[in-house]
Design a protein around this nucleic acid. Structure first.
Lengths: 390, 390
DNA sequence: GCCGGTGGTTGAATCGTTACATAACCTCCA
DNA sequence: TGGAGGTTATGTAACGATTCAACCACCGGC
């Protein structure tokens, strides 16, 4: 039987003080004299009083909550980001409402409404394509928005992202270094900026190597999960061996795992028959059938930084300047993309001296052409921070 | 610039009606005459009015939210459960606050307080060991609690679980059937009911096969994640081959993946050197270095059912009876536990016999001894439903 | 011409908390 | 003795939405 909920009023009566005093004990204990304070605290304990957040929020005008909208909770990339967000939020005593838009505009819209009705402090979101108007409206009405793993086209909000063009470049440069020339890009929908950028990076690497852009075979998927990867993998497996790409760069690790499974199913050896590089370096990448090379993103850091920016905007001084933080990715080389015999002559190695003796080799930033502009920086630290007027 | 938030009052003024009427338009549009209604709706749109959830909640006494507390968001098992919960909740227009206790009592307590302050409709929780008092107190104060993947010792609340003893039994019975006799159990802490039950099931299978219980080597871990699995794997790898278990049953798939990685690192072949069976059948199990045999749980269904029970208790009639729903697990056999050559005596050539032509073999329930008592039932449906007084 | 409905609308009270202006009381010093 | 100044405690007005009794206007029936 639920006994009547006890309010601050009941506590006050029980302790023989006014409600104001109880409120003070709760929020500014130092202004209450010792004997009173402990009497009130005893009453609180005695009656099992629990603050009512709704009432506090109503009074305060805002809730002590932030919203996080991700594309797919089942993707470890996002759960790691979420943990980062949560760590940062809980340090400020804020709760996180985690919402899963599942790539669907309708679900996203629904959650944005819900979060706005909850008067959250702000919203962290990896938007579905075309969400920018909705987000802008939200901001105009007073809810701060920070884009996660996405970049603000208008600089109208803060954002935290990873340089995906560089990531794509790193991946494909590596594959080219392993003597691959028939390379495919698996990913989609292209309307996702992440996907488009990774593709662009791949093209850039190809061009720099003197190849034509249209030599990059593109296999566009309808989603970024394992089943979509399997479909793409099946398509690749069915190609005649002479035309089949010798290497595949996947827009994320889930796709890569799907492709890998399908290769195994069709008895195509990885990396000998087809080399694979994924993206995100989720923990399962290293445990895959063939340990997966992947472009690592600072996932946890991404979430933490996003939350920091949001709190800065929501709680901080009015003089907030929107910032675009861009992290640098890092290529992790594992077995799935190693040439069959690294050191045997065959074709003279083009320009890839430090091969891999250790299972996981982290490409030092300095070996990547694109990194030249960003001197001495750990990949886990933002390298490009631009500012825009609030 | 955040323009002043617009309230129901502003809408009323703008539309030239009373606040009561606006509220009616929002909540019982049918009692409002057509011309008035559309006038109000126009005003709402015009002013960009957004309901204030806090105010509604305050008035209603309860929020339109449920809390879900899991042990580890990074474990795909829990994200799948969470999706089930979310699907069910959103059908009733409820939001889910997802909290990650990280196996830590302190974090769990913190989140429970937070959820109680938020006056959630109820809490779904996979508790850390020893949380039952805290939960009971919570219930006494009026917040419904449903245990997820856990069973109520006192029948004082609803619960949804999977028969973990049966799961353990299935796994080890299978390994015994593959001629393994030196079997190890990897899992921990034993204070988790799930772990203890799976272990118990393993022992039961062993006994039934006429072996002594202490022949099951137990390697207790301090957590249920990949790193803990690697530690256990390293321990196994270091044993002299003559003493080393020929098969390992892991309390969950993350541990199994860790063990598997370590076997590979130590050049111990799976399943020839050591066979492995995991638990949960997360999506990544099938994509592992060696596709992982695993005990499958109806994860999504688990979450959905838990949410259903909670809503039944929170929204339904006062005559709620607590129920304990138990699902039945299902063994999925993959390469990691297939005997080298079922019928041939010794070491086969290194070329793996094409054991699995079908990627995943699902053991039909009827082959498992324990299933005998539960006739014709899909594993995805609850098989045991006991009732207890509210 | 009065009464009883009925369909629409109103306005005030309410939820639990916080902030703030005010009061009550002490102590100390001129 | 009469403040001044300081410390504590009090009471009340918000915050925004919902609910509900009361009210109004109008119609039909007798």
């Amino acid at each position: 039987m639920a006994n009547a909920p006890v309010s601050i009023r009941d506590v006050a009566a029980y302790a023989g003080v006014s409600v104001g005093t109880v409120s003070n004990v709760l929020n500014r204990p130092d202004v209450v004299a010792e004997p009173t304070r402990s009497r009130v605290q005893a009453a609180i304990k005695q009656l099992g009083f629990i603050r009512n957040e709704s009432a506090r929020q109503l009074r305060a005008g805002r809730s002590r909550t932030i919203g996080l909208v991700v594309l797919d909770v089942a993707n470890p990339f996002f759960t790691d980001v979420a943990r980062g967000v949560e760590d940062e939020a809980s340090e400020s005593g804020l709760a996180v409402i985690l919402c899963n838009s599942d790539d669907q505009q309708a679900k996203e819209t629904h959650y944005l409404e819900l979060l706005e009705e909850h008067r959250v402090q702000g919203i962290l979101i990896t938007p579905v394509p075309g969400a920018h108007d909705r987000l802008a409206r939200l901001q105009r009405r007073g809810t701060p928005v920070v884009l996660v793993d996405s970049r603000s086209p208008t600089h109208g909000q803060c954002s935290v992202a990873v340089d995906d063009v560089l990531g794509g470049d790193l991946a494909v440069t590596h594959l080219l270094g392993q003597q691959h020339e028939r390379i495919a890009f698996v990913g989609g929908p292209m309307s996702f900026r992440q996907v488009a950028d990774r593709h662009e990076g791949a093209v850039r690497a190809l061009r720099r190597a003197g190849l034509r852009a249209d030599q990059l075979q593109v296999i566009e998927t309808t989603a970024l999960n394992v089943p979509a990867g399997k479909l793409a993998g099946a398509a690749i497996a069915e190609m005649p061996a002479a035309l089949r790409p010798t290497a595949v760069f996947c827009a994320n690790d889930l796709l890569a795992l799907g492709v890998l499974q399908e290769m195994t199913a069709h008895r195509i050896r990885v990396p000998d028959g087809v080399a694979i590089v994924g993206y995100d370096d989720i923990d399962f990448a290293a445990a895959a059938a063939v340990p997966l090379s992947s472009v690592r993103q600072p996932r946890h850091q991404l979430g933490r930084t996003a939350a920091q920016l949001l709190l800065e905007e929501a709680l901080g001084e009015a003089s907030h300047q929107h910032r675009q933080v861009v992290f640098e990715p890092e290529l992790v080389i594992r077995q799935s993309s190693l040439a069959r015999r690294q050191d045997r002559p065959r074709k003279a190695p083009r320009a890839k001296p430090p091969a891999a003796t250790t299972p996981a080799v982290t490409a030092p930033a300095t070996t990547t052409p694109a990194a030249a502009s960003t001197p001495a920086s750990t990949a886990a630290q933002p390298t490009a921070v631009s500012k825009a007027a609030g």
